[in-house]
């Protein structure tokens, strides 16, 4: 099976949904996995022992249709250090949109990273509606797919899995609007203020 390192590529790190997805992953992974946060910028310490890992799992949110800049920075550093010969790269990506296909370009970027560096790409899980799904009754869909994702890694497979809340577009728009209105309320920001068309400097 080999040791596994989870690289959290979210700028939000400790407060991120990526951390929650990583925790769900760990609940199915048979051994304790190590974790590293890309924003910590402690790669020097990590790289001193990175060759012990047989699996690197990148968990990150979709940022402007692609990989977050903070993770790009880590990937650039990673390609300068020797990894275990048999290392496999796996990915869990989440976006707040309804369509899992919106994650595809970011997955292509990671696949290309693997090809460029002669690394094996293993399993991928693309989660749509990922900002809110864990706080809904549909969270079980993520757990179910995560279990399959883990089985895939253990079986040495290379597949892309996807999941999302099974909502119509109209229902999703309504539910996401409510989600963000509630989010704003925590900061005493009204819906009207959140819907402002003004951008600073106007």
């Amino acid at each position: 099976m080999g040791k596994l390192l989870i690289v959290n590529g979210s700028p939000r790190a400790e407060k991120s949904n990526s951390k929650k997805y990583a925790e769900i992953f760990q609940s199915f992974w048979p051994e304790k996995a190590d974790t590293y946060s890309a924003v910590s910028q402690k790669s020097h310490a990590l790289f001193s022992h990175i060759q012990q890992y047989e699996h690197l799992l990148f968990v990150f949110p979709l940022y402007t249709d692609a990989v977050p800049a903070v993770l790009l920075s880590f990937l650039k550093e990673l390609e300068t250090v020797p990894l275990a010969k048999s290392v496999k790269i796996h990915v869990i990506i989440n976006c707040g949109f309804l369509e899992p296909k919106q994650n595809e370009v970011a997955l292509s970027i990671l696949r290309y990273f693997c090809k460029k560096n002669h690394l094996v790409f293993g399993m991928a899980l693309g989660i749509a509606t990922g900002e809110a799904i864990l706080a809904t009754p549909f969270a079980f869909l993520v757990r179910r797919k995560m279990k399959k994702f883990v089985k895939g890694i253990l079986a040495g497979k290379s597949e892309t899995l996807t999941t999302a809340m099974p909502l119509s577009k109209q229902l999703f728009l309504k539910a996401s609007a409510q989600y963000w209105k509630n989010y704003g309320k925590q900061f005493h920001t009204s819906e009207e203020e959140m819907r402002s068309l003004k951008i600073e400097g106007e």
């Binding site: 800049a69 704003g184 925590q186 959140m194």
Partner: peptide, 17 residues
């Protein structure tokens, strides 16, 4: 600097980082 991912520009100070 890198975006903090705090959503402040959406939910705290809309339109302003």
């Amino acid at each position: 600097k890198n975006c903090l991912g705090c959503f402040g520009c959406w939910v705290k100070t809309p339109g302003k980082c």
